[in-house]
Amino acid sequence: MASATSTVVSPYCLSSSTTRSGSSCSVSPASAFASLTNKKSVSHLRFHERSFTSSLRGRGIGARSRTIPLRERKGVTCSASSTLPSALLFDCDGVLVDTEKDGHRVSFNDTFAERELGVVWDVDLYGELLKIGGGKERMTAYFNRTVWPEKAPKSEGERKEFIASLHKRKTELFMALIEKKLLPLRPGVAKLIDQALTNGVKVAVCSTSNEKAVSAIVSCLLGPDRAEKIDIFAGDVVPRKKPDPAIYQLAATTLGVEPSSCIVVEDSAIGLAAAKGAGMKCIITKSGYTADEDFLNADAVFNCIGDPPEECFDLAFCGSLLEKQYVS
C-alpha cells in the first residue's frame, strides 16, 4: 500500500454513472419573467437572467472549473483496513437520493404556480441556483437579482415571511413525493449505512434542506429501524449554511467525535468546502447536477457508492482514508 505521504489518483466508479440532464421545462425563464412583469422586454429579462448567473459564478461558488482527469478504474474496496471512522456524515439531496431536478425543483415550481407568481425554474437555471445553500436563501437571491413577484410584499421583514411561507408549502409538496416513494435511494446508500451501524460507527445526515423534508427521506426511504439510529442536522439548525462548515462542526460536537475522525459523503463543491472547512475527510459521489464541478480537494471521487457486484467503496475504504491521503 502507498505510504501516508503518497499521492494517489481518486478512484472513479465507471458503473451506475450519472450524467447532467439536458432537458428543460416547457416554459423558459425569460418567458416566465415576462409573464411576471408584462412591462419588460424578453431581451431585457434575459439580461437579468445572464447577470444573475454571472453574479453566482463571480462569487466563486458556482464556477465550473475544468474537470481534472481521473484514472478510470472499477470500484475500490479495502476490506483489510482495521481503522474505522468515528462517524459517517451524509449530505441528503444528491447523496441519499438524487432529489434536485425531479424533486425539489418540481416542488418549487408547483408552489410558484399555486401562488400564481409567474415564475418557473427550468433545469439549467436550477442547476445554477443550487450553488446557493438553502431553499429560502435560494429564492431570496433569485428574486433579489431578477425581480420580486408583484404579489410579494415590499418591506424586507414581510418579504422574509413571504419567502418562509413559500418554502413551507414547497416542503409539504416535496414530502408528498417522498412519502409516495417516487424518488429512490441512490445505489449503495443503505448498504454503507448498515455497515456503519453494525460496526458501531455513528451516522448522521447534515443538510441545508428543511429538517422535515430530510426526516421524511430518512424515515420513508431508509425505514424506521435505521432512522431511529441516525441523527439529523438540517435546515436552520445553524445560522450559516454550506459552504460554511458550521453544520459539520455542530454534528461533530453533538456526536462527541473529533472532526479528523469523521468521513463526509457529499455530492457538491459547496458541500466539499463545508466538510474541508470543518477539518473532515470527504468522499464525493457525483450527482446529476454536480458531475462537472471541481472536486480537486476531495479525498476520493466516485459516481456512486454502489451495491455489489458494482460496488465502488465500502466502510473499510472510508476507514482507509483516515490512514492515507487520496487526492484528485
Rank of each mutant, 00 (worst) to 15 (best):
A273H: 07
E150C: 06
Y12P: 00
E310P: 05
Y126E: 02
E258F: 09
L197A: 06
D307V: 10
I68Y: 10
G271I: 00
G118V: 07
R159L: 00
G94Q: 00
P69E: 04
G127T: 09
V264D: 02
A269Q: 07
R64E: 12
F52L: 14
F174A: 07
G306T: 07
L322Y: 02
K242V: 01
T99Y: 05
T53H: 07
T111V: 08
C206R: 07
F317D: 03
K202Y: 00
E323Y: 04
P187Y: 12
E137I: 05
G319K: 00
L197N: 04
G135C: 03
V97A: 08
G279N: 00
L192P: 06
A63E: 13
G134S: 09
A204N: 01
F33G: 08
D299T: 05
L255G: 05
A300G: 02
A113L: 14
S16L: 15
T77I: 14
S328V: 11
N199L: 09
A176N: 13
S16C: 15
S165I: 08
R20H: 10
T254Y: 09
F108Q: 05
M1E: 11
K202H: 01
A30K: 06
D102K: 08
T5E: 15
P153N: 11
A252G: 03
S268Y: 02
V119Y: 06
T18K: 14
G75R: 06
C220G: 08
T53G: 03
V119I: 15
S26A: 15
T5D: 14
L88Y: 04
A227G: 05
T254A: 12
T37A: 02
S79K: 15
C220N: 15
K101N: 13
A176L: 09
K212E: 14
L70P: 03
A34E: 09
S55T: 10
M139H: 00
V205M: 07
L84M: 11
E114Y: 14
N303P: 09
H48A: 13
V201S: 05
K40V: 11
R50C: 10
K131C: 15
R115P: 05
S43A: 14
R145T: 10
V9C: 13
G288K: 09
Y126Q: 01
P239H: 10
A298D: 05
R71N: 11
M280N: 05
A298I: 09
G157I: 12
F174N: 01
S65W: 12
G200E: 04
D93M: 07
F47M: 12
S209N: 11
E323K: 15
A273W: 05
G277P: 00
K170A: 02
M175V: 14
E156N: 14
R59E: 12
F295H: 03
A196G: 02
L117M: 10
G134P: 07
E156H: 12
S287F: 03
S328D: 12
K74N: 13
V106N: 03
L56P: 01
F174W: 05
L130Y: 01
I163M: 01
E156M: 09
D225G: 04
D231G: 11
N199R: 12
V8W: 04
S17D: 10
V27S: 01
